[in-house]
């Protein structure tokens, strides 16, 4: 695979429309990566943003602003420029439980699809059935699994349009040797709290070091030098994006603060506006 400076200049082989605001782009050429690592997609003259990989050669994107609007104008046969892979991905272990919420599902699908990781359970959460991205693909992977203990799939939706009605933490989460979480920070925090809570309070008493969370922050360099994506002292691009819960649960910025484009410490709820 050739790189043009840092970028892989690659043709869009196929575009998959998951719902009104979410699409996947299957790419002809792509760097090798581990599930949970990320890439930076550059649209010349527009901007460059961190993007989730839902397979080695597939990125999955939700339309949230001007950059993703431009990205959604791209057609099959056109080209994208992607650099990466960056960061630390998810641990790949058998008997683990994957818990994904909405746009957090794609990196976990990549993980789920890896052969040789037996008996993973998958909890999908979303506002409605449309947000349970890759549901069919996940079921298919589970059905085709030759592993003796198989895979356990659980889905919950806010509106009850598929599976049990409720949030991720309300789901009947299958026990695992480790838990890999990806989704909104508040969702991951709530789930991690439930997993670590005492059994008598409905928790699982899981060792916090066995819970992995994929974090997201405003990103610039993606190579660990500029500090833009840091929360407290952790740099998402280089130390993460996947962190152990015990590494970050007590950091003041976790689920509270992020740095803005100018580097100012800002409340997360301010930035979401």
């Amino acid at each position: 695979m050739d790189r043009n400076n840092q970028y892989v200049h690659t043709k869009i082989e196929k575009i998959i429309e998951h719902n009104e605001s979410t699409r996947s782009f299957v790419l002809e050429d792509m760097f090798t990566s581990e599930p949970g690592q990320f890439g930076m997609v550059w649209l010349p003259g527009v901007d460059e943003k961190p993007i989730s990989l839902s397979a080695r050669n597939r990125i999955t994107v939700r339309k949230v602003g001007p950059f993703t609007e431009k990205l959604f104008e791209k057609k099959e046969g056109q080209y994208l420029d992607v650099r990466g892979p960056y960061g630390r991905g998810f641990p790949q272990m058998g008997f683990s439980t994957l818990i994904g919420g909405g746009c957090g599902i794609p990196p976990l699908v990549y993980l789920f699809s890896k052969s040789g990781t037996p008996a993973q359970s998958f909890v999908l959460a979303g506002k409605n059935k449309d947000e349970l991205l890759f549901l069919d693909e996940i079921i298919k992977i589970a059905e085709q699994s030759t592993h003796y203990q198989g895979h356990n799939i659980v889905a919950v939706t806010d509106d009850g349009s598929y599976g049990k009605k409720g949030f991720a933490a309300d789901a009947n989460i299958p026990e695992g040797s480790i838990y890999n979480l990806c989704g909104p920070e508040i969702m991951m925090k709530t789930v991690a709290e439930k997993l670590t809570a005492p059994v008598k309070e409905g928790g699982y008493e899981t060792d916090p070091s066995k819970i992995y969370l994929s974090m997201e922050r405003y990103m610039k360099c993606a190579v660990g030098i500029c500090g833009s994506c840091s929360f407290s002292g952790k740099r998402v691009c280089a130390d993460g994006p996947v962190f152990q819960y015990d590494e970050i649960s007590s950091l003041p910025h976790f689920n509270e603060f992020a740095r803005s484009r100018t580097g100012e410490i800002t409340e997360l709820k301010e930035l979401r506006k």
């Binding site: 610039k220 360099c221 993606a222 100012e264």
Partner: peptide, 27 residues
Amino acid sequence: EKKGNPNPTVVYTGSILLNSMALPTHP
């Protein structure tokens, strides 16, 4: 504040790193 440049703010040529943050500055 001064926003600084949008991305890409760094590029690595394989031998030299270039950056153009352009002094993003908060109060």
